[in-house]
């Protein structure tokens, strides 16, 4: 019969933690590279609707965002609860969209201007009136490629 030899001194040797910082740094770099900081502070509350037929936005640098929704709680005392349009960092009216579109388009390299998209981040409870106004302004400004930001689900609810 084979004999199991008992380890002579018993106590387990301490595991070296010297490589722990390396592992953590690796994770850190992964997150630094893979994530993107939010560059605009949202002044409106936006919960995008969930639909099934969505496409991924390929190149985020070729996208400009328009936010539409109720002002956030902190600003409601000042601006009320009616839905508002936010362009970049400030509230705007629909008349500002034309100029905004042109400045945003100027920022894009000329060769890639055809791929430039306006993404509409609209709260799902917003009424279509304001959205239609924005769409009309975009048409006037000839920004025809749009993307209705929405989450992907496998089945829509009633």
């Amino acid at each position: 019969m084979a004999k199991f030899k008992k380890k002579s001194d018993g106590g387990t040797p301490a595991i070296s933690t010297a490589s722990l910082p390396d592992i953590v740094f690796m994770l850190l770099f992964f997150f630094m590279v893979a994530t993107k900081m939010r560059e605009t502070t949202l002044k409106v509350q936006v919960t995008t609707p969930s639909v099934t037929e969505v496409d991924k936005i390929e190149n985020k640098s070729l996208v400009s965002y328009i936010y539409i929704g109720k002002p956030i709680k902190k600003l409601q005392a000042k601006f009320g609860t009616a839905p508002r349009i936010q362009l970049n960092d400030a509230f705007a009216t629909k008349e500002d969209i034309f100029t905004w579109v042109n400045t945003e388009r100027e920022k894009i390299d000329e060769s890639e201007r055809g791929k430039w998209t306006v993404a509409l981040k609209v709260d799902k409870k917003t009424k279509m009136g304001i959205v239609t106004d924005v769409k009309q302004e975009l048409r006037k400004a000839n920004a025809l490629k749009i993307n209705y930001s929405s989450k992907k689900v496998n089945k829509i609810s009633k």
Partner: peptide, 11 residues
């Protein structure tokens, strides 16, 4: 970022 891509008709 995901979304529904649409094209608007020109004015």
């Amino acid at each position: 970022e995901t979304g529904l891509v649409r094209k608007l008709p020109p004015m």
